[in-house]
């Protein structure tokens, strides 16, 4: 029993830095994610600024759907952080509620995105329709995959919370939240880059 307890403490503390190892791991992962999306956004900027006249293709994008999705994702960040707040307060009912709302909002985002893609594809705007569309599908597609991954992680946490299996590992809600907020921040930049300017 004592050994098991010691192992648990070790797995949650990074010797020397004082940062729990799980949290340090997620931030390390996010650092690599910053270079992935940073490189993608950087190349979009280079191509866009370097072309004589950027095609007005973005006028074909649905501004209202993107605005709706922006509000959905920002709100989901709040529900996610409120789930973490519930963990801190030891309120498992609130934890389940806010995890569920976060999952729901993530699914709404993906549903709207799928609807948007279907509309564009039906009008012939495929990923091969031009450089703007390659970037559009590349950036929003990679982002949507990240949202999907976050939803799956949240569903796993939610299922565990339902069965009270989450109790010993509740710090995972904070770790999943870090990832979820990062995905939100990526959208904060994709929205103006593709839809507003």
């Amino acid at each position: 029993m004592k050994d098991a307890l010691n192992m648990k403490i070790e797995s949650m503390t990074l010797t020397g830095t004082g940062i729990p190892s799980g949290k340090a791991g997620v931030w390390c992962f996010l650092a690599s994610e910053i270079t992935v999306f940073g490189g993608l956004i950087g190349s979009y900027l280079v191509v866009r600024l370097g072309s004589g006249g950027w095609p007005e293709a973005s006028a074909h994008l649905s501004f209202s759907l993107a605005l709706f999705n922006t509000l959905v994702l920002l709100t989901s960040s709040m529900t996610m952080v409120l789930a973490f707040d519930a963990v801190e307060k030891g309120d498992s009912k609130k934890l389940r509620t806010f995890l569920f709302l976060t999952i729901l909002l993530g699914l709404v985002f993906l549903g709207v995105k799928a609807f948007e893609y279907a509309g564009k594809l039906a009008h012939g705007f495929t990923p091969g329709a031009g450089v703007f569309w390659s970037f559009y599908y590349g950036m929003t597609g990679l982002h949507a995959l990240h949202v999907l991954a976050g939803v799956i992680v949240n569903i796993i946490l939610f299922m565990e919370a339902l069965g009270n299996a989450l109790k010993p590992n509740e710090h995972r809600v904070e770790l999943a939240g870090l990832y979820w907020h990062f995905v939100d921040i990526v959208w904060i930049f994709l929205f103006p880059l593709l839809y507003l300017t």
């Binding site: 931030w27 996010l30 650092a31 690599s32 910053i34 270079t35 940073g38 956004i41």
Partner: peptide
């Protein structure tokens, strides 16, 4: 956060 942002 800052180091990978600088690299990008």
């Amino acid at each position: 956060v800052i180091v990978p942002l600088l690299f990008a």
